[in-house]
Design a protein around this nucleic acid. Structure first.
Lengths: 278, 278
DNA sequence: TTTCTATTTCTCACATTTCGGGAATTACGC
DNA sequence: GCGTAATTCCCGAAATGTGAGAAATAGAAA
């Protein structure tokens, strides 16, 4: 998955020093949370002084922290920024009471997933059924093309964005079974959109997700609410029922969301209208 | 608090393009979560093309996201990195059950605060008393010199780190009432250390925090547990009782923490031994 | 405290990259 | 599909990043 070894020396195309510094952070994963300068030198094929400069900049910014034994780990700024995002996100004010209300009826789990360009992220979860593995906590990313929360967002994107996606991600779309060409894709999306909600089981095969879209403005998706149950607990009637439940909840959430932001788009207003894909 | 306007042109001392790019992120606060390129140009006094380059790099890395109306907001990578940190943090595996156990006895609130160099961060909270304003959720930073969770960590830092701090942060230490010079400071710290826990009320005057240190290795503080109650609910006897409770809980947490990591410091092991201050 | 080693920063010469104005292009929303 | 932004591209000038090695710290033990 990773490249075995980066290019000999010099820079890859489009690579700038900023790119490289930010790229360092990608190395810090749950599997390899600690990196020393020596490891970074070996990995990135850069001079030791340069690596020290980079690491220092990241430390000064709080994105890395030195630990005992000449190692570095991800720093506190990420935790702080996550909080900052949480504080500015109106969805996190609006949705929890709705989830609490649905909890007993759903009797499984619930996810709130936000749309972030090509990615969809779990942003909030609520669980009752202990059999449901919720490896789906805040911060878990999904492809825009996989899973019912993602797809129901995808289906509700504006047409020109769907067109862009069809052009730039034909491969992904085909692999996800969403159509071999623009017409098929568009029709598939329209079907989902018209149905109002989407039932799917393509991420965890043992679970069924029933998702409906949340809009921050008419025609502009911001997120989706996904009701989750184990497969054996969902009859076709249940699916329909939960679908309607989700759609209704999302309608309420959407209208609160739109009331939350004053009509004029002055900055300083909540920052959720994410609707650009590249 | 902010500088009214940055230096005319050119670069401030020690400022590098990397510093500046990372600095852009600092502008995205809960108060001003949306920035346009124009606003950034005005604020940073850089060419429009340059700002676009910077913003693009940050977007490509997922640290910013474009929103409708030519604005940018903090991106999904922060949420993902926070998750990554949570997954790698053994404290978040060990502490929740302990907090649950203490919940009814404490009958107030609990904070787990982690040591990050000059900063201390709330990393986990647990609340029962609805009268306690818990603006203290995950991600909230504290000064190393204020609040009982911070101070109890401070007091348990190795001597040479205390010395460094006394040299470089004399001002802060004096202002926090921790001593006018090295001797006073050292003695104050020793007193706290010997007592084992710390009772204080210097952040929220209506609350009392009772904190004890958590060690990832003998003599190496990693974090602190803080038991919180409203001031009127804490008699001197209560304080002593809660102090002992905290110390005992932290002893258990510390020993689990040390068992969690195998003796050898191979990398790939959990990444918590944060013990360097600058 | 003092000492000793490993880690980190500093110095400096060289050249590669960045910067910014303006033109060209692309994207969004009707 | 079109028109108005928003964004990227292009280019010369010049400043900044780079890396080897020296110097300075910081960390851990006596």
């Amino acid at each position: 998955m990773d490249n075995i070894s980066p290019p000999e020396h010099g820079r890859a195309a489009g690579e700038t020093s900023i790119t490289r510094v930010l790229g360092i952070l990608d190395l810090f994963t749950p599997e390899t949370p600690v990196w020393t300068v020596d490891l970074l030198v070996d990995r990135l094929l850069l001079g030791r002084a340069t690596i020290y400069r980079y690491v220092r900049a990241l430390c000064d910014a709080g994105f890395l922290v030195p630990v005992a034994g000449a190692g570095y780990v991800l720093g506190p700024r990420f935790i702080e920024f996550d909080r900052s995002i949480r504080l500015a996100d109106p969805l996190l004010h609006i949705v929890p009471p709705v989830m609490a209300e649905l909890r007993d009826v759903v009797n499984g789990g619930q996810l709130l997933c936000a749309f972030y360009g090509l990615r969809v992220l779990t942003v909030l979860q609520d669980k009752t059924d202990p059999n449901i593995t919720m490896s789906m906590e805040r911060g878990r990313p999904f492809s825009l093309f996989r899973g019912s929360p993602s797809r129901v967002i995808l289906a509700n994107l504006p047409t020109y964005q769907l067109r862009n996606l069809a052009l730039n991600h034909q491969q992904d779309i085909a692999e996800a079974g969403l159509g071999q060409n623009w017409t098929e894709f568009r029709d598939a999306m329209r079907t989902i959109r018209r149905n109002g909600y989407l039932v799917a089981s393509d991420i965890d095969k043992a679970l069924v997700g029933i998702s409906a879209p949340i809009f921050h403005a008419p025609g502009a998706v911001a997120a989706s609410l996904c009701l989750v149950r184990t497969k054996q607990n969902v009859s076709p009637e249940d699916a329909t029922f939960l679908g309607r439940l989700a759609v209704d909840a999302c309608r309420r959430i959407s209208s609160e969301l739109q009331a939350f932001r004053p009509g004029d788009a002055d900055f300083g207003a909540p920052a959720f209208p994410i609707s650009r894909v590249r």
